[in-house]
Design a binder for these strands. Structure first.
Lengths: 185, 185
DNA sequence: TTGCATAATCAACACATGTCGTATAAGTTG
DNA sequence: CAACTTATACGACATGTGTTGATTATGCAA
């Protein structure tokens, strides 16, 4: 199955659009393969030619969102002042706030384990790359890079999950700064 | 549905045992309601009287494991020496190592979002309780307790997830110490 | 343009899900 | 013991899941 075949591109695009359409109007966890196929005007069996299950399908559609988060996180300069949220982090939390219903769904009990895993993996990889070679403060140079990255990726995921499921949700600015303070300590 | 009705207790116990039996011999993510009912010698419809879906069923059976992790995490004295892993943390990572296949499954792509959420929630609650009233170092007293707890709960979850999915898995003491160093920084 | 490769369709399969209404039997209370 | 409450069993239902084999059509290349 060549990814650059026009037919493949067309079908996948249709599926992605269908998922986002459905995700906007109903419980993401309740999206079914049948629905997506129907909504995309594609045969149900065809879906299985591209994705093993509905989770992969949904996650693929979310990939872009996840990538944004990961990139923004990696952009944070680690030596920025403790009491001012760095620009990329503000952007990150703003992005999550804008798509809050989606994140609430995906990170909540109805969410997708695959989504959580991908988000953490992506964050971990991005942060590990950021650490490579560079000196880390606090005598942490002997902590494995990967573990350090996983620690922070988990911390960020945890804060976001707790934030978006909060009622009422705290202001993005506030949470962003709190996270930054915790990170910079 | 009274929880102390002998019939209810019997049925739930049967279901819990059935889940653990099945989990030991096959992919946790592939456990079906039908199977559990069959294995427990209970009618399939009866399962739905107690649990909304298979995730809740599995998570219920795992509750004890999660509780252990949360309790151990909360027991860590925050002023212990930087370069020696505190006892409870050693116990915690040892416990996870012992049940590694289960955690690998539950925290991995095939895992249960509900399990992840419960684990994080439980950790967050336990840690928040630990923070209540106490003074936190590093000028973090103005960071919301809940956010701080969510940060650490996520960090721990992240490190564990990354650890148990590693191939080959790093030694428990090593990861425990790395986590402790990160926490104590 | 003609053929070839293969993506997509279609029908059908066995199985699982979640939800009924009704019947049975276990447990509780008088 | 007898009358009640209600957990469980049972059968049936519409729907979804993955998968398969045969068929149609689309895109590419000689």
């Amino acid at each position: 199955m060549k990814a650059d075949d026009p037919r493949v591109r067309r079908t996948r695009a249709r599926l992605r659009t269908a998922v986002l359409t459905l995700a906007a109007e109903k419980d993401v966890g309740a999206i079914t393969v049948s629905e997506v196929a129907r909504c995309a005007g594609v045969n149900r069996a065809t879906v299985y030619l591209h994705f093993p299950d509905v989770d992969a399908l949904v996650t693929d559609a979310m990939e872009e969102a996840v990538a944004q988060v990961a990139r923004a996180a990696a952009l944070c300069p680690r030596d920025a002042p403790r009491d001012r949220t760095p620009e990329p982090l503000t952007v990150l939390f703003g992005h999550v706030a804008a798509a809050a219903p989606l994140y609430r769904r995906m990170l909540g009990p109805q969410g997708s384990a695959l989504f959580v895993v991908r988000m953490r993996e992506r964050l971990t990889a991005e942060l590990a790359g950021r650490f490579a070679g560079g000196h880390r403060a606090g005598g942490l140079d002997d902590v494995p890079t990967e573990t350090h990255a996983a620690y922070l990726a988990g911390a960020l995921t945890g804060v976001i999950a707790h934030w978006v499921t909060g009622d009422p949700p705290a202001p993005a600015e506030e949470v962003a700064l709190a996270f930054w303070r915790l990170f910079r300590t």
